[in-house]
Structure formats: C-alpha cells, structure tokens
Computed example of a mutant assay.
Amino acid sequence: MRYVRIENLKEGMVNCKPLFGKNNEILLNSGVIIRESYISKLKELGYHGIYIEDSISEGITPTVLIDDNLRIECVKSVREVYDKFSSNKVLNEEVIEDLKTCVDEIINSVLSNKELLINVIDLKGYDDYTYSHSVNVAVLSIATGIKLNHSKNVLYRLGMAAFMHDIGKIFVPKEIINKCGKLTNDEFALVKRHPLKGYELLKRGGNFPHYSCIGILHHHEKYNGTGYPIGLSGEDISLLGRIITISDVYDALTSDRPYREALFPSESVEYIMGGSGTLFDPDITSAFVRIIAPYPVGTCVNLSSKKSGIVVRNYPDFCLRPVIKILFHSDTPVEPYLIDLKNDPDARDVVITGVADF
C-alpha cells in the first residue's frame, strides 16, 4: 500500500484502510473503489490523503503501532473526561480507571512492537481535534519514554499526564481556542493560564497521580526558560513536562489548525531538531526523532538524483535515510529497484528533496 495525498487521488484508485468519521463511524471501507464524489467529500472533511493499493505499492505494508480500535477507545475515554469536567468539574474513579486502561494498552502495544517507529499519518483521526490530539500526544510521549528506557511506572504517569495535558483549556472560551487570526495580548494571557488551571483541577480531585499533575503544569515550559506559566528552564522542568512539550508541538505541527495547514512529518521533524537545546531538552529531542518516520513507509518521494520512488523501510537511527523502491528516472518509468540511502556507498550524496506527486 502507499499513501496518496488528496490532491493526487484519482477516480478508480482502491482504498486499503478504513476511514473513520468524527463519531467513529466507517466513512470508507477498505477495498472500496474511489469515485470523484468520494474525493470531494474527503476534501470537505479535511482529509489530507488516504492509503491505496496498486501495482507499484504491492507488498508494502506500513507498521501499525496503535490500531484503530485502541485509538478510538482512547479518544472516547478522553472525551468522557472532558465532558465530566465541563459539566461538574469532578473526575470520578470510573473515568480514571478507563484512562489507566488506555495508558496500559498503549504501553503494551508500543512495547510489543519490534521496530519502535511512528508513522504520524496513522495517528491522525478526524474526531474533534482536542481529543485526538490528546491521544496522539500520549502515544508520542509514551514511545519517547520507552526509547529513553524509563520504567513502566514512569511511563504510566507520563501517559496519564499526556492524555490530560490540555484539560485546562476547558476554562478558555472556544472562540479563542478556534480563532483563525492572531490572538490579542489579553486572549493569549488567558490561553497561557491553561497549564496551571489543568494542574489545579486535577490536583484538587485527589485521585490523579501527583507527578502527572506536575507534567501537566510544565508542558509549555521551554528548555531555555522562555515558556509558561512559570518560566522554568533546563532540568528544573519535570521530565514529564520536557517529554510532553515535544510531543505536543510535533502533533500540533502535523495537524490542521484554524490559522494554518498541517506540515508534513519531515518538515515537523526539522522544526523539532532545530529547537534542540533551546526550546527542547537535547537528550529527549534525540530520542524523539528516533521514533518518528519523517517519510513513512508507503510515502512517494523525489530524490536529488532526479529519481523518484516509494519508501519501503525506515531506519530509526537514520530517519532521513530510508530504503526506497525506485520507480522513475525523471518522469520515465523504469524497472523497479532498491536504493538504501543509509548503506549504499553510491547513494551517500543523494538526499530526499520532497514528496512525489504520483
């Protein structure tokens, strides 16, 4: 299978992964032949692309770190927490247990995956952004924690904090959260209060892990001290806060927001790498970029050598040097063959220049 961006989707292509709507209903099942009306509807719903099955992608299967059913259950649990807090500001033990179950299942799912590499495209759902973002940040944070060899106890607290990192936004008016233009100083001051409000809300309940509350409080602090709400720097920021801030920024960058379109994973990884040592803890940044596939398996790419093809394998420690199945020289089709950007001596001067349109 391969990923085709929505603008390159054509009638007659075959969808090969189920697409889910905001209420977790199946919008388009696997095996369905794409029609022009489907393409228009997918554009309207905000889809950036879909996975298709065709002759050039035969035998290529991206690794799935978190399956759709688990993601849907986690989104449902996060939604219930927000609904409970929005109505009565109380978090009961039953809802906490649901969150704990989700965290445990994500930890086990990630730990059971031999190749710890995340295709962010597979994380993207089309539920309400707040809920799906919370789940994505949890998955990214837990995977980073595993890459850093932290214990299950730390991973559990990290996951709980990541799920609830934005709960303080229930105190921010929705018109500010969804504003397309630049926020006023007063509006931004309200937004900057949400880590503290979330911390106070969860700490007051008494049944949420204290260390997780600290992670929520710190998730907008920056390594160089320019963050909020306290302005902490370096290791004065809790471990959970330092991990969650990277996951939070990365998922936001790869998501459509009211004020800009989503960036491609490769562009977002470059931003994270550029912030190492200033915005982000350098050791955590190094671990984070080793769990992200900037060019996921199934992505069509152009090379500086004027060749193009499809990514068939990624290397966690060399995220920008995947194995590529070459399909075209310039625009001329060729008999497919493999180039290993990491190990082929003849490919040392070759780099990926962008995503291909075929």
Rank of each mutant, 00 (worst) to 15 (best):
R257F: 03
V323I: 12
T144A: 12
P296F: 12
A138S: 13
G309T: 10
F188Q: 13
D256H: 15
E73R: 15
S212Y: 01
K342P: 01
E115Y: 03
G206H: 04
S305K: 04
S30G: 12
D98H: 12
K182L: 10
G275L: 13
S112K: 14
N15H: 11
K174E: 14
Y126K: 12
E93N: 09
G46R: 07
L123W: 02
S57T: 09
V81M: 13
P316G: 03
Y259W: 14
L320W: 10
N23G: 09
E25I: 08
N69F: 06
T332L: 07
V301F: 07
R79W: 07
K22H: 06
R79L: 07
Y250E: 06
R71T: 08
K89R: 15
G198K: 01
Y228K: 10
V120K: 01
G21C: 06
K43C: 08
V75G: 03
S86N: 13
I26S: 06
G125I: 00
C300A: 15
N108W: 00
G168W: 01
T130M: 11
M273E: 15
P209M: 05
G309Y: 10
P229R: 07
C180F: 00
P265N: 11
N314H: 04
Y156L: 13
S304A: 05
S286I: 02
L183M: 05
T245D: 11
H133G: 03
S37V: 07
V32Y: 10
Y211A: 09
